[in-house]
Amino acid sequence: MPSTVSFTLNGEPVSAEVSSRTLLVDMIREQLGRTGTHVGCDTSQCGACVIHVDGVSVKSCTMLALQADGADVVTIEGVARNGELHPMQAAFREHHGLQCGFCTPGMIMSALDLLQTNPDPSEGEVREWLEGNLCRCTGYQNIVKAVLSAAATMRG
C-alpha cells in the first residue's frame, strides 16, 4: 500500500507517495528529481548515495523512504548556500579531488559528517572514515588532501 512520506529536503518541505519498500535514494532521485545523489552498488559498499538525515550521514540506498518521514534531509544539492560553494566543495575542486564525479557527492556528504565530530582529523582518520566511500578514479590522495584542506578552512 502506498503511503505518503513527508520530510524537509534541503530546507524545503517535500512529500511523495511511496511503497513500503521504496528506498530513500529512489524516492529522492526518481520522485523528487534530485539526481545529485548516486547509486553505485546494491550492497551498501560504495557510498555514492551518502546524504544527511537529521544531521548524520547515511547511505540512502540502505534506508527506506518511510523511515525518513518527518526528518531533515540534506543532499549534495543543499550543500552550497546562496550560490556560494561550501568550503568542502571548493576544496574538492581546488585539490582535484574528483575525476568522473560519480562518487563525489557521497564523498563530500561523508566528509562533512566527519568534520562535524572531528574538526581536525589526521590523514589516517580521514582515510579510515572514508572506507565506506569507494572511488575508482582518484586513488583517494587528492580527496584526502581536499578534506584536510576543508577542515583547516572551516576551523578558520
Partner: peptide
C-alpha cells in the same frame, strides 16, 4: 568540476 560538486552532473540514469 562545478556541476559535479554541486550535484548537477547529468549521468545516463
Amino acid at each position: 568540476d562545478h556541476r559535479f560538486i554541486t550535484g548537477g552532473g547529468r549521468y545516463t540514469d
